[in-house]
Design a protein around this nucleic acid. Structure first.
Length: 472
RNA sequence: GACCCCAUCGUCUAGAGGCCUAGGACUCCAGCCUUUCACGCUGGCAACACGGGUUCGAAUCCCGUUGGGGUCGCCA
């Protein structure tokens, strides 16, 4: 039987980082085995499921290029099938009606907690005669879980784990309004979709026991379970919205690349020897359940950025310019022109090694499109520069035989020697004048790209500015 | 509280009894390169949670302690 995996998010919010990793692992596992990767939207909670969340999740998956096979399945649409399975089970004596009220259940839990017992449903309607049913109360259907013995889950990550059946209570299969609960729906859908391997977050681990019992009661074979440890925030606490559990769209906006994101997520909890930068092809070839670690990992933005940098630099310039356009546009407040793009392309090779994200890259490229006001360090550099020597440099530049980086450098070097300064004494003020910063790509390259007119104009403006605003 | 899981540098991890005076990556520090900042290169700081066993030998196996985490919904 060929491998079938699935990613089954509930559309109650964006696709967060943990979900993205779960999807990645399922995708990789299916692709590795030449199987199918399915997508199922678990929208049985009508209160909280939203169209917007569905769209956000699909968007996130597409952005990460985790393509699923076939159409996405919406769980709610299969509600009748789920209910039918529950009723069939009840007909076999594997489930029963429970008339306990929510208040009653809450009281039961409070009491159990107070007495130090596990907060489980006590099965009070398990063996009661239907004739005792209170009138006017719509019952829920509960699973008649085995009480003796134990349930064993052979987990791909956690190994063989057994839990006494006495620890598991009779879960609700069908709500009072007749709609199926998650626990029932997953089992029925995974079975009907021929899912062979369930790879999901560790927070579902205890569910595996309940679901296994259900599979057995219905007479189906459970899939292979693998529960991957959760991702924690940088502070070790559970990853919550306050601790970086952002939607993947937030990472996209921070300038991360899908490939960088995937690579980082892959290494968070999975490893293949010392491999760090792993191509998609390699990931598919190498991915296996054995490589998944058993302990939770912390999310580290620095490492994400570092991994991302590899992919940023590997990207071809034309493609990179496309990706960069919206980031630059956002910074300069207008769309990039063809001329802007030309400048960007010319500078990209020197800009790339200075950035780890698209945001950093756009920031570094900004001076190409706008005359930036000098930052504090640059302003000081300009103010402190010897006006006479700066004037000599401007002259040297103006009189340069050509306008390429090499020629300009030769000219300024000669000038520096003539005025008895090191190159840096002239080059740094030049950099500050052209870029508004003390850090930039090679300054003569910058001058070359900016062109003669713009370079001289920026120099004039800077000299004027420095004269007006003396050292602070 | 009950049940379950986890535990190697600050972080991600390699390690499946001797190959480990514990390796790689990120971060940090130093040096080289250099017109700046980066990149790159070289080097450095830094870990087997603790206590018992088992064994000729334990980061690796067992038990306990401690510390983290997850689950206990008519949510998924």
């Amino acid at each position: 039987m060929s491998v079938v995996t699935r990613f089954a998010p509930s559309p109650t919010g964006f696709l967060h980082i943990g979900g993205a990793r779960t999807a990645l692992f399922n995708w990789l596992f299916a692709r590795h085995h030449g199987g199918r990767f399915l997508l199922r939207i678990e929208d049985t909670d009508r209160e909280r499921s939203t169209e917007a969340a569905v769209a956000a999740i699909l968007d996130g998956l597409r952005w990460l290029a985790l393509d699923w096979d076939g159409e996405a399945i919406f769980q709610f649409a299969r509600m009748d099938r789920h209910a039918a399975v529950a009723h069939a089970l009840m007909a076999k004596g594997g489930a029963y009606r429970c008339y306990a009220s929510p208040a009653e259940l809450q009281e039961m839990r409070n009491k159990a907690k107070a007495e130090g017992r596990s907060m489980r449903y006590d099965g009070r309607w398990r063996d009661r005669d239907p004739s005792e049913a209170p009138s006017g109360v719509q019952p829920v259907i509960r699973f008649k879980a085995p009480r003796a013995g134990e349930t064993v889950v052979r987990d791909g990550v956690q190994g063989e784990v057994r839990v006494a059946n006495a620890e598991l209570d009779d879960m609700v299969l069908l709500r009072a309004d007749g709609t199926p609960t998650y626990m029932l729906s997953v089992v029925v859908d995974d079975h009907d979709m021929d899912v062979t391997h369930v790879i999901r977050g560790d927070d579902h681990f205890t569910n595996a026991f309940r679901q296994t019992q259900l599979y057995v009661a219905i007479g189906w074979t459970p899939p292979h379970f693998s529960h991957i440890p959760l991702i924690h925030g940088a502070d070790g606490a559970k990853l919550s919205k306050r601790h970086g559990a952002l939607g993947v769209d937030a990472y996209r906006d921070m300038g991360f690349l899908p490939a960088g994101m995937r690579n980082y997520l892959l290494r968070l909890g999975w490893s293949h020897g010392d491999a760090e930068v792993i191509s998609t092809e390699e990931a598919i070839a190498w991915f296996d359940i054995d490589g998944i670690g058993r302990s939770p990992a912390r999310f580290d933005m620095e490492k994400l950025a570092s991994v991302n940098a590899h992919y940023l630099r590997a990207l071809e310039d034309d493609r990179l310019a496309d990706l960069l356009a919206p980031f630059v546009a956002a910074r300069i407040g207008r769309a990039m022109t063809a001329e802007d793009r030309g400048l960007l392309l010319a500078a990209l090779a020197d800009l790339k090694p200075r950035a780890r994200t698209l945001v950093e890259l756009a920031e570094g490229a900004l001076f190409l499109f706008v005359r930036r006001a000098p930052d504090a360090k640059a302003a000081r550099l300009l103010a402190e520069a010897d006006p006479a020597k700066t004037a000599r440099m401007v002259e040297a530049l103006r009189d340069a035989a050509g306008w390429d980086a090499h020629t300009l450098e030769v000219a300024v070097r000669a000038c520096a020697e003539a005025v008895g300064e090191k190159l840096g004494a002239l080059a740094q003020p030049l950099r500050a004048a052209l870029t508004g910063s003390t850090a930039s790509p090679p300054v003569f390259k910058v001058a070359e790209i900016l062109g003669r007119a713009e370079t001289l104009a920026r120099l004039d403006a800077a000299i004027e500015g420095a004269g007006r605003r003396p050292e602070v």
